[in-house]
């Protein structure tokens, strides 16, 4: 994909808009962090980038129980086998 990088300077209380429907406001600036407020339509997902991989992991985690009781039984068997030497 062909993406451009736009670098902007903003002060507290100032905003930028994306696509007309998304607005990002600089709420607070401290020495090392910036607090942002994001206004977006409900159908637009807004997330910290580092949570995207965890979201996929969580969806995968849901499959453990939906695979049936055998998967839980097998987990319990492995836990029972592991516990004596788990340290």
């Amino acid at each position: 994909m062909d993406h451009a990088v736009l670098v902007l300077r903003r002060r507290v209380g100032e905003t930028i808009t994306i696509g007309g429907g998304i607005e990002i406001e600089v709420v607070e600036i401290s020495r090392t962090r910036v607090k942002l407020g994001v206004t977006a339509p409900r159908d637009v997902s807004v997330a910290r980038k580092e949570t995207i991989a965890v979201a996929a992991e969580n969806r995968q985690a849901l499959e453990l129980i939906s695979a049936g009781p055998e998967s839980v039984t097998e987990t319990l068997r492995l836990l029972g086998a592991a516990s004596p030497r788990d340290s």
Binding site: V54, E57, N58, Q60, A61, E63, L64, A67, S71, E74, T75, L78
Partner: peptide, 16 residues
């Protein structure tokens, strides 16, 4: 930590 299937085993991400 949430458990997720990994073949016949399970795994978990302890950093989440």
């Amino acid at each position: 930590a949430l458990l997720m299937p990994a073949g016949r085993s399970v795994q978990a991400n302890t950093n989440a």
